[in-house]
């Protein structure tokens, strides 16, 4: 379980210096951050694409629950863990 918490009403924000990038050579999307990258799987990419600096965690999970065939509580838990993992690595911030 991730140690960094993110509340349902928190707004995740991709900070300056971090951006989504399509790696043509590997044919995959990555999250580019200073001195490192995160290789993204399709679900990780879908989560990050919902982050626009205004959507709350609740809103993001609601959109994803409508698109994906999985129980909403599972999607909420997985999204929270994923974003908390990015926060621990300091490549995601939240506004409360």
């Amino acid at each position: 379980m991730a140690q960094v918490g993110i509340a349902p009403s928190d707004v995740p924000v991709i900070p300056r210096g971090v951006r989504l990038h399509f790696d043509k050579v590997r044919d995959l999307w990555v999250l580019l951050a200073p001195e490192r990258t995160i290789n993204l799987d399709p679900v990780g990419l879908a989560i990050l694409r919902e982050i626009d600096g205004t959507a709350t965690l609740d809103a993001i999970t609601e959109v994803l629950a409508a698109k994906y065939d999985a129980p909403a509580p599972q999607i909420t838990a997985d999204v929270r863990d994923f974003l908390a993992g990015l926060m621990e690595r300091r490549i995601l911030e939240v506004r409360t």
């Binding site: 990258t37 290789n39 799987d41 698109k67 065939d69 999985a70 599972q74 997985d78 690595r89």
Partner: peptide, 12 residues
């Protein structure tokens, strides 16, 4: 679409 738990694969 099918949901799979997203994994953070971090990468000199």
């Amino acid at each position: 679409m099918a949901w799979t738990k997203p994994v953070i694969r971090e990468i000199g």
